[in-house]
Design a protein around this nucleic acid. Structure first.
Lengths: 165, 165
DNA sequence: TATTGTTATACTCTATAACTATA
DNA sequence: TATAGTTATAGAGTATAACAATA
């Protein structure tokens, strides 16, 4: 077995006296960046798509009745104009449709088409496979602990972010 | 105190029977996205800069002798052309300089200028402040555990990624 | 021939702000 | 007036591939 070369990365800038919070953040980002790069490459290579589009479709997959543009914007943490752009691209590919709400005609309800659902399910299966492969061999107990601790982190940080608005 | 509204996000798509690995990944990404959004906004608002540029400078800050373009590309996990573009922007702002290596004239050694170092240090201090504020109140012991566990995750994933190449 | 880095290209994502339509 | 969404704009980041210079 070959020992992987240790490539210094963004975390390398740390010294011992930095704040614990900063160390945690840089380590978190380093982990995410590595995995995310793999996912982006896989989506591009195997499906000719991008992470934001995959994310858009995944939001819709569990909500058969569809979502509004504004809800999508909030969930994806991007501004409204972007959602319009991504939605236009996905609509032109036939993966989603937009129905005006009969009660309030300012609102569009966005849903997956059947083709969109099939397409998304294939991507999601591949995505899950990449992740399972990447993490294969990491102790279940460690994964479980991380899931627990990250839940706490997420809740904490979200509360902070929303409090400052 | 107001209870933050729970906004469903990318993690919402999960159901109980999904793989643990996938749950871990989506939670990791959700945490990173929230913090990263804050950092991006802060860098844009207070310094008119971006995360990739900040990352570029931070790579150089701990390496007084400088780095090659290729090393920067590797550490930032982006392809070479991008590094050239970011370097050109930072050079035009006087934050870095590029010296050709006398031994091998294909190589450029990129270093922070004094102005670049001062500029970076101010940004880094603000950055650390944002992170410390965001995580303030999260148990030290939980932070320490996360740092430990994420070290294991990072090592594992990096080994996997490098093995597949 | 291989390596280092640049250039050219095309595309996606992003925020901001002005705008339209509806409530 | 306020809200939902679109459009227009401008800019940044990204990958790919062809390229030049050097080893």
């Amino acid at each position: 077995m070959s020992v992987p070369t240790s490539v210094p990365d963004s975390e390398t800038r740390l010294t011992a006296d930095d704040h614990q919070a900063l160390r945690l953040w840089l380590r978190l980002m380093a982990c995410t960046t590595v995995i995310e790069t793999e996912v982006r490459q896989g989506l591009a290579r195997e499906f000719g798509t991008t992470l934001p589009r995959f994310d858009f479709l995944s939001q819709l997959d569990r909500v058969p009745e569809g979502l509004r543009m504004g809800e999508l914007s909030q969930r994806m943490m991007v501004t409204g104009g972007n959602v319009t752009g991504i939605a236009a691209a996905l609509e032109s590919e036939g993966l989603i449709d937009r129905q005006p709400d009969p009660k309030d005609r300012r609102i569009y309800r966005v849903r997956l088409t059947n083709a969109g659902r099939r397409s998304f399910r294939r991507m999601a299966a591949a995505h899950e496979g990449w992740i399972v492969d990447l993490l294969a061999g990491l102790e279940d107990s460690q994964q479980a602990q991380l899931i627990e601790l990250l839940a706490g982190l997420k809740k904490h940080v979200l509360a902070r972010v929303q409090a400052e608005q």
